[in-house]
């Protein structure tokens, strides 16, 4: 699995520059953001992430105001989080996390069937779509570096 993810990442990086510009806004897109309103990245690793995101993450991160999860496409919500670095974001997503205001990120988005790589792909997609495309690019290069 890990090998596949890394291969995917390598593949992606080549075409990264031509990727669609993610749709972002200060507080995110208006209304609930379902996956069909989000751009399709060219990188297959991120494409996988998009599928996983739609299945497991959208319910909360699509902008569900009751749950307190940072909304996808919201620069304001994601900027400080992205600043912590991919490693921490992925760790929180894989192992679970209770935020400073006691909102809960359940381990693997409460979907125990997901592998670490799948969670990482979903996180990468969410970051890529929320103003962190440059960070994701670096992250994918690191993955590729590990793989080589």
């Amino acid at each position: 699995m890990r090998f596949a993810a890394v291969m995917g990442a390598m593949f992606v990086c080549a075409s990264m520059a031509q990727a669609d510009s993610p749709v972002v806004a200060d507080r995110g897109l208006d209304g609930f953001v379902s996956v069909d309103r989000l751009p399709v990245p060219e990188a297959s690793f991120l494409q996988d992430g998009r599928t996983i995101w739609a299945d497991t993450c959208e319910g909360c991160h699509g902008g569900n105001k009751y749950v307190g999860a940072p909304k996808i496409t919201s620069l304001r919500a994601w900027e400080p989080r992205i600043a912590q670095g991919m490693e921490i974001l992925i760790d929180h997503a894989v192992n679970g996390f209770v935020g400073p205001k006691y909102t809960e990120m359940p381990p693997r988005g409460a979907n125990p069937d997901l592998t670490d790589e799948q969670v990482a792909a979903a996180v990468a997609f969410m970051v890529w779509t929320s103003g962190g495309d440059a960070v994701v690019e670096t992250y994918l290069k690191t993955l590729m570096g590990e793989g080589s």
């Binding site: 319910g59 569900n64 749950v67 307190g68 809960e104 359940p106 409460a110």
Partner: peptide, 11 residues
């Protein structure tokens, strides 16, 4: 709407 806001709700 009453939403599942924590893992424990759905679980």
């Amino acid at each position: 709407p009453d939403i599942s806001v924590a893992e424990a709700c759905s679980k």
